[in-house]
Simulated scan of single mutants.
Amino acid sequence: MKIISFGDIHEDIRNLSMMRSELETAELIVLSGDLTNCHGKAETKRVLDAIKKYNKHLLAQYGNMDMQETDSYLSQEGINLHGNGYLLGDVGIFGCGGSSATPFHTPSEISEAEIERFLTDGFNKVKDARWKIMVCHTPPKDTTTDIIQNGMHVGSQTVRDFILKFKPHVCISGHIHESRNKDKVGDTIVLNAGMFRDGWYIEVVIDKGALSAALKSIA
């Protein structure tokens, strides 16, 4: 199984055509959050429709820069990862959208307690899967994926604690645009692809009993 993931799209879909082959050959496309710029259903649909031209197998969740109606629309479409989990053969994928509190009072911020609850709700739906992939828009604290420009770590301690307790094989995050990187928390691979317009995405491959996860570049 090949999974292609990216997030922090912010309505900028110009790079899609440059990764046509990757999109068309993936079994699943996962969108980790921030599909829009403080917008809702109409703009979310526009992003999803553009991706569906290449691959209709999608799972997605809202980010802190998406309105609440994006979350509702993804649920209506039956593809919402937020607080939810999906089994695809022996692969389980679960997620938590929104983000922890920011200084900017963005549209969809949630508490640390809510992050834990949504992750737990999703995890419980896939806990028996051989391979578990966690998609959390907020990265775990104290990694190379949660550092802002002044060097501060602004990720979630709750997300980090959840990873250490439940040990998913991969955590796909985003949110902190300048912190595109790959790291580990315990044995869990953590990836942040940064903004989609910068040409980076994540590839997860599960084949013959082995899993690999890597940052990839369109260029």
Rank of each mutant, 00 (worst) to 15 (best):
T44H: 03
E114Q: 14
L164N: 08
Q157W: 09
D187R: 02
G155D: 06
T70W: 11
G63V: 06
T145K: 05
W131R: 08
W200M: 12
T158E: 12
I93G: 07
G122H: 09
I51D: 09
L35T: 03
G194L: 00
T106H: 12
D183I: 00
D142V: 03
I13R: 01
L88F: 15
D34E: 04
V30I: 09
G92V: 11
G95M: 06
H175L: 04
K125G: 06
S75Q: 15
C136S: 15
E116W: 12
V126T: 12
E178P: 00
K127L: 07
H57N: 15
L164D: 08
E27R: 07
L87V: 14
F94Q: 10
S17T: 10
M18F: 14
G186F: 04
K167T: 11
H10F: 05
G95N: 06
I79D: 11
P140N: 11
H169N: 13
G98D: 11
S179L: 00
K125M: 15
I93V: 15
R180C: 08
R197S: 14
H175P: 02
N55S: 09
L119K: 03
P139S: 13
N15C: 07
P103E: 08
A193K: 02
K182E: 11
T143D: 11
C171M: 06
N181Q: 00
R180Q: 09
G92K: 07
M65L: 14
L81S: 13
C136K: 04
G33I: 02
L74M: 11
M67T: 13
L31A: 05
R20F: 01
V91K: 06
K216F: 03
K167W: 01
L211V: 08
Q61D: 06
G155V: 07
P168K: 03
S212C: 01
L35E: 05
L164K: 12
T102I: 06
V126C: 02
N64C: 09
I13M: 13
G40T: 05
S179H: 04
C96T: 12
D90N: 15
A213Y: 03
D34V: 06
L35C: 04
M18G: 06
P107W: 10
D66R: 08
R20M: 08
H105K: 15
L119N: 11
K53S: 13
L48Y: 04
Y62I: 08
E77D: 05
S179N: 02
V126G: 02
I110G: 07
K45P: 00
K127H: 11
D142K: 10
E77K: 15
V159I: 06
M195W: 00
F104S: 11
G122L: 10
Y62P: 13
V91W: 04
K52H: 02
H153P: 01
R197V: 12
K216T: 00
H105W: 11
A219Q: 10
D187H: 04
I79G: 08
L88M: 14
C38Y: 14
L35Y: 04
I218P: 00
D187S: 12
D71R: 14
K2D: 15
I148H: 05
Q157M: 13
E109L: 04
R117P: 01
T144Y: 09
I147D: 05
A113Q: 13
A210K: 13
T70G: 11
V185P: 00
N64I: 09
C171I: 02
